[in-house]
Design a protein around this nucleic acid. Structure first.
Lengths: 209, 209
DNA sequence: AGATGAGACTTGACGTCGTCAAGATGCGAC
DNA sequence: GTCGCATCTTGACGACGTCAAGTCTCATCT
């Protein structure tokens, strides 16, 4: 077993942490490998040995982000017994991950920054997707079993990801119209509720036609 | 009136075009102000005079993107008479803009690259939002007039934006599970249909409870 | 028609960045 | 105890963004 304490203790983890912190502060545009090294207290070329190049480090951060997403949504699944409540909790968990780990989320779906097809990324992303799929499947089983699970899954996922990406834009729009923007977690629940019920459909517990 | 033909003809437009092209080729991470200048056939400092810094140029590209979005969705609105069909056409138009103008879309919601609150950006973004809002309002009027228009709007918008951001991830997932991913335009329609009907709701034309 | 001034663009420079090569250093294995 | 390898440092290179100064071109005024 490696001793895990050389000069630094666990430099790869320290670099991932510093990278996530820097990304959270300045966004992907303000990211700098040298600044990450500086924050970790090592020389500017130290990250190269562990991650190859900057894409390698960002890929590791992305994988960590998908891990957080998997763990958070898994925990949310245990929160509620009712399938619809559970899906709402999943949505809330998704945006909570985005709020609590903004640095990770800044790179998670950026194929120009992250090496697509990295095994860690793919594994954790797939696990997160499986959690969502199970949640959506349970809701589908309530009534519309003929619906495509994948389409329903991806609509929910896309709505949450879009919410994360657009929330700042929503705030701009609302500010321009003299209105305040709801909390992002509340919006996640309301989006989920709307997708479950439908714009022209009845309430969640409506018997339908 | 400025003659619009000096050394170059219309350098600002040429720079915007070269920037969008470069962004489309290499993503936001591969963007370089000097490369843009090179493609436009001017010196590396020429863009400074017109756009200040790289954020200024990217802001102009983002504004152009919102303009494209406004024009495309406006045109889509005229395609169908039925409100639900119209909303589906809006969704399809949204992803078509993303496919046809990937360079613009790479920066449109990136507040670390674009100057939020730029008047051009805000104006065109608001116009695009108004087109969407009108479309959603018409669908809401079909039955559930008590629903919050803003929430319904933003659910649709988020789902489309999420689809654009995640489509490559969907392809990865489907490839891993030996399945092929539907065309992004078709997915846009199916997402819209699902949001209109709801996961547990009835069909679009179902009378409900 | 020639001078003048403002805008458009170039040239050159500076510090920072990512990456590569070569060297130093410390830990574990034999 | 020393040998070998992984770890990290140092130094260098070209490319980048930005600023300052300079050059050029066109439009206007007399």
């Amino acid at each position: 077993m490696p001793s895990a304490t050389y000069h630094h203790g666990d430099l790869p983890a320290a670099l991932r942490g510093a990278a996530a912190e820097l990304l959270a502060e300045r966004g992907a545009a303000g990211f700098s490998l040298r600044e990450v090294a500086r924050r970790a207290g090592v020389s500017h070329a130290a990250p190269t040995h562990h991650f190859g190049d900057s894409t390698g480090l960002l890929t590791a951060v992305a994988a960590e982000g998908f891990m957080h997403l998997t763990l958070a949504t898994r925990a949310a699944t245990a929160e509620a017994a009712d399938p619809v409540d559970r899906l709402r909790a999943l949505g809330r968990a998704y945006v909570r991950v985005a709020v609590e780990h903004p640095g990770h989320c800044a790179v998670m779906f950026r194929s120009d920054l992250v090496h697509d097809g990295d095994p860690d990324v793919q594994t954790w992303a797939m696990q997160a997707y499986d959690v969502l799929r199970a949640g959506v499947r349970d809701v589908l089983a309530l009534r519309r079993t003929e619906l495509d699970v994948e389409v329903a899954c991806r609509t929910c996922w896309s709505a949450m990801q879009g919410l994360v990406a657009l929330h700042r834009t929503f705030e701009h729009i609302d500010a321009g119209e003299g209105r305040s923007t709801p909390d992002i977690g509340d919006l996640a629940e309301r989006f989920t509720t709307l997708i479950v019920d439908g714009i022209v459909g009845g309430g969640t517990d409506a018997p339908g036609r």
